[in-house]
């Protein structure tokens, strides 16, 4: 299980549009070898077919595909954008935090989503993640939540 480790997080990124942001969040997973390259295409394809429903809350998108689309290990990446962009969601645009989810079918997948949900259920954590200036800042927010 890989959850927002250093290599999986990019702070202050730029993205041209929603597809570009999804790809970048996917590349973070692929570079960390938790998913195959084809998984990135599957993430984009899911967006094209199902729309932006995965913009789950204001500022937050969680693009992903299916375990059988090339996931090697349950994992979460984060692309934090310097300038938020629109995904076309009816109530939660614009998006600044894109969490790429390497969805596995294992028990770890559930643990991973529990950690992510616990982190994002608190608005102050979301605001701090949006304004974080470095990976160090992000790590501090995650550690404070885990130690509660």
């Amino acid at each position: 299980m890989r959850f927002l480790e250093k290599g999986l997080v990019k702070v202050g990124a730029k993205a041209a549009d929603a597809e570009d942001a999804i790809k970048q969040a996917g590349v973070l997973l692929a570079d960390a070898k938790t998913v195959e390259d084809v998984y990135i295409d599957a993430m984009v394809q899911s967006f094209q077919e199902n729309g932006p429903y995965f913009v789950l809350a204001p500022h937050i998108a969680i693009p992903h595909a299916r375990p059988e689309d090339g996931v090697k290990e349950a994992s979460v990446s984060l692309l934090q954008l310097k300038e938020p962009i629109t995904f076309g969601h009816s109530s939660n645009d614009p998006v600044q935090l894109i969490f790429g989810l390497g969805a596995s079918s294992s028990e770890e997948h559930i643990d991973l989503l529990k950690k992510l949900t616990q982190l994002l259920n608190k608005e102050e954590n979301v605001n701090q993640l949006r304004t974080a200036a470095s990976y160090h800042d992000i790590k501090t927010i995650i550690e404070m939540e885990e130690n509660k």
Partner: peptide
């Protein structure tokens, strides 16, 4: 319910 039934619907289930 979500688009794929793998990720976001599970998050919703936890909170519901």
């Amino acid at each position: 319910v979500c688009g794929l039934g793998q990720g976001t619907s599970l998050i919703l289930k936890m909170n519901v």
